[in-house]
């Protein structure tokens, strides 16, 4: 019994220590925003890697999700003779929830893994140590540009994903569900409120921050060799995904609870 309690205690303490380490890492990253130098070239490269190159995967995910959502809402709405709600529910569902969450998860899969693998490899091949000996702070050079780029790029990706998701719903609505194109679009616009869209973009910024932070943190903590880098990559994706879903619930409570 005592052995079980000891193991449980050790696990809880380990988790708390991990949370503390991540919080310190996040605080240190943000603190570098106010302390020069700032590596603009690395920031722009990260912006392209995280933002521009994630567009196809986020766009495709949103397109198919919007289409599937239209089909589901139509089928569900038909039970209450409420098929007409398809455009508004697709729009609200996309911009408030599915756009940011699915966009965030897709970016987590693509970006957190690549950041963790890149920084992890740099760590095991002593490139991080080399940076230090060249008077370059790895947090400034590697972490801050990526975290900042993701925080700024993911809301843009979410906005694009929202639009493409609504487009997916419109395509299915018009071609498969016999909606009138103009009516579908008017219903979409009429029912959407500014805060619906803005809340999704704020979520996107938070998710972007979490994704890049997890990639950088687990990369920096990477163990030795290929196995260590592999483990860091896996941990980064898992942690980023879970944190996105948890943060989504917390933000939804904050934004929309009665």
């Amino acid at each position: 019994m005592i052995g079980v309690l000891a193991r449980l205690g050790a696990a809880v303490l380990g988790s708390l220590a991990n949370i503390g380490r991540i919080a310190i890492f996040a605080g240190e990253t943000v603190s570098h925003l106010a302390r020069p130098p700032f590596y603009t070239r690395e920031f722009l490269q990260a912006l392209v890697q995280i933002g521009w190159l994630s567009l196809p995967v986020v766009g495709l995910t949103a397109l198919f999700t919007g289409g599937a959502l239209a089909l589901q809402i139509y089928a569900g709405g038909a039970r209450f003779n409420a098929e007409a709600v398809v455009p508004s529910i697709v729009a609200i569902g996309m911009v408030r929830e599915l756009g940011p969450v699915l966009g965030g998860l897709m970016v987590a899969a693509r970006v957190a893994s690549s950041i963790a693998a890149e920084i992890g490899t740099m760590k095991v091949t002593e490139q991080i140590d080399a940076l230090v000996t060249l008077s370059t702070n790895p947090m400034k050079y590697l972490t801050l540009p990526r975290v900042l780029a993701a925080t700024l790029a993911v809301p843009v990706l979410v906005a694009v994903g929202d639009s493409i998701g609504i487009l997916g719903g419109w395509i299915v609505g018009v071609t498969r569900l016999d909606f009138n194109s103009a009516t579908y679009l008017r219903n979409t616009v009429d029912f959407l409120e500014t805060w619906d869209v803005a809340s999704g973009l704020v979520k996107g910024a938070v998710f972007g921050f979490l994704v890049a932070l997890m990639g950088c943190y687990h990369g920096m903590q990477s163990g030795r060799g290929a196995q260590g880098v592999g483990r860091a990559t896996k941990s980064a994706v898992v942690a980023a995904s879970v944190l996105i879903l948890a943060a989504n619930y917390i933000l939804t409570e904050l934004f929309f609870s009665a």
Binding site: M122, T125, E126, Q127, D129, A130, L134, S135, T136
Partner: peptide, 24 residues
Amino acid sequence: FQGGALFDSLPVWQNVAFRLMRGA
């Protein structure tokens, strides 16, 4: 460094001149 520790993302000359392109 023992393994070289060159930065993969930079061409050779930028690796060599790394310190000369940043900081003091």
